[in-house]
Nucleic acid binder design. Structure first.
Lengths: 110, 110
DNA sequence: CATCCCCTTGGCTACATTGCCAAATAGCCA
DNA sequence: TGGCTATTTGGCAATGTAGCCAAGGGGATG
């Protein structure tokens, strides 16, 4: 494996890693609907503000969101419009898992 | 956030997490071209066989690949055809990052 | 200026992940 | 059967991540 390919793989892995957390996925979905301030997201998720803030910083560092300070609030928005199609594929993985599960159940006989 | 949505987010995060590693991304790309046995992937990546085997087991558990034992070799293949489009979006995130970087350079003046 | 509010950062603990080596398993072939 | 190859599993050390509390910074408002 050459050096460039390795770097490229690492860059992509970093983006995926940033998305690979329930709260961060929630944030992405929520921001797809429109911009939200930290306090709104905190309210919806129900964790400590500092926790949410750190999640947002992960998303920002990965280039998935941008922030906009207005007054003493900070509003975040999705920077990449395609993220949601993106999930279509993840869904199909989940559906495939379900199919396997049901065929397993058939074999088992329940 | 209700219970069902939470479960759903966790399930998706799990799939993304499984993909979020350079070697595992490499494997996914390679399997997109066709099935490969563990020894081939090991050779290409250049890590210990046991490490590759564990990566494959992560991908399998996430429902991304299936394995097929033939003789004393185990061949893996991608189970979900859409994975590669999936990357189109990740690419656009990376490109957006580059743009920011170059506009930053403009401001700095180099 | 003092105070409140929103948000971020530092620090800590608990827990998860990675990658290697060594050992176990399973199929082939002589 | 015994040895050989391909793969998986257990175990360990190093490193990374998540979430909370406490403290800090910066803007608004009285």
């Amino acid at each position: 494996m050459n050096k460039d390919r390795k770097k490229h793989l690492e860059a992509r892995a970093k983006v995926l890693k940033a998305m690979a957390h329930p709260s961060r996925l929630f944030i992405i979905e929520e921001l797809y609907k429109g911009e939200r301030c930290v306090c709104e997201l905190t309210e919806m998720i129900g964790a400590d503000v500092s926790t949410i803030s750190k999640h947002l910083s992960v998303l920002k560092q990965a280039g998935l969101v941008i922030d906009d300070k207005r007054g003493n609030q900070v509003f975040y928005q999705l920077r990449v419009p395609c993220i949601l199609n993106f999930f279509g594929c993840v869904e199909s993985v989940l559906e495939a898992q379900l199919q396997d599960h049901s065929s397993l159940l058939k074999i088992v006989g329940t």
